[in-house]
């Protein structure tokens, strides 16, 4: 598979702060590439460097085998992007916004083509309404229509579900899957929500504090047998003492929200349950957690990460 984006040793320093540190990754043709990290991890800075909004301090970026430095215009011609909030001209209608950005990309699409785009993101019925009357989800879909209007091969979506209601999130998810499967677009999508990436990404990269933690196929990375277990009992402090005095002590992680957290192998869960019942603990909840924080717990032994996210 062809490499669409190739990033090598990308670093960005703002004065004393190193926002992105020696980041390297590759996006291949057809990928839905999940770019995962907590808020402030350096996702946005990295994506902005990809889109030439921020100049890297060090490192090389290549798109389609061309250097971004030297072929900015040709590259951006083939890239569509929505960065953080979907930002459009609020005093213009959806149709006018789309037309304006199409012209900015050097296109002169017909009304039918533009309406088609709006149809695809479910906004055809509101084409002539001013954007200021739109919900956040509608704006986000318009943003995506704008990113697509010049028919780019690569689409970059930075936190596309931020601020959306569950229905909005589902709409965007479906749209991304549609673009990937039906329109054969390569997509880079960043998020701080693991379950979101998990549902759409074919490959993913996790960064923290500007550094790459892990990169690989989503299925491989997430199908680890290690899980983070959330345990809630009638008396958690009592249970903690029981666990600390048992062979499960080394699996214990710091408590969060008054609940017990354990890192263990998936097939150990029944055994743990039997142990607790045997110790007469009233188990209220026993559930593997599936968010980024816990995923970090899984892939990093280091406690400092946990602190970073719990603080």
């Amino acid at each position: 598979m062809q490499d669409i984006v190739k990033v090598a040793h990308l670093t960005k320093r703002f004065n004393q702060l190193t926002a992105v540190n020696d980041l390297s990754f590759t996006v291949r043709s057809g990928d839905v590439y999940g770019f995962l990290g907590q808020n402030g991890a350096g996702k946005s800075t990295s994506i902005r460097m990809l889109l030439t909004l921020i100049t890297p301090t060090e490192g090389d970026i290549e798109f389609f085998g061309m250097s971004l430095n030297r072929h900015r215009k040709e590259i951006l011609q083939q890239v569509g992007a929505v960065i953080e909030k979907p930002d459009v001209y609020k005093y213009l209608s959806a149709y006018d916004n789309l037309k304006l950005f199409a012209r900015l990309s050097g296109m002169h699409p017909s009304r039918a083509v533009l309406m088609n785009q709006l149809e695809m993101v479910g906004l055809a019925g509101r084409a002539n309404d001013p954007v200021k009357t739109f919900s956040q989800g509608m704006k986000q879909r318009l943003g995506i229509a704008i990113a697509l209007v010049h028919n780019p091969g690569l689409i970059v979506l930075d936190e596309p579900t931020n601020g959306l209601d569950p229905q909005g999130i589902a709409d965007i998810r479906n749209l991304i899957l549609f673009l990937s499967r039906e329109k054969k677009k390569t997509i880079i999508v960043s998020s701080h929500l693991l379950n979101e990436i998990e549902q759409i990404a074919t490959r993913m990269l996790i960064i923290d504090k500007g550094c790459k933690l892990v990169e690989g196929a989503t299925s491989e990375l997430l199908n680890s047998t290690q899980v983070v277990l959330q345990l809630n009992t009638a008396n958690n402090s009592q249970t903690l003492k029981i666990l600390q005095g048992s062979s499960w002590a080394d699996r214990l992680k710091p408590m969060r929200d008054g609940q017990l957290i354990l890192g263990l192998n998936r097939n150990e869960i029944p055994e743990l349950n039997r142990f607790l019942v045997g110790m007469q603990v009233e188990v209220l909840l026993l559930q593997p957690r599936n968010n980024l924080e816990d995923y970090f717990l899984q892939i990093t032994a280091g406690k400092q990460h946990v602190d970073a996210f719990t603080n």
């Binding site: 953080e84 900015l104 704008i146």
Partner: peptide, 13 residues
């Protein structure tokens, strides 16, 4: 408005 970054991701110097 945030449109500046959209503008600058378009293929213009």
């Amino acid at each position: 408005m945030g449109t500046l970054r959209v503008l600058l991701t378009k293929p213009h110097s």
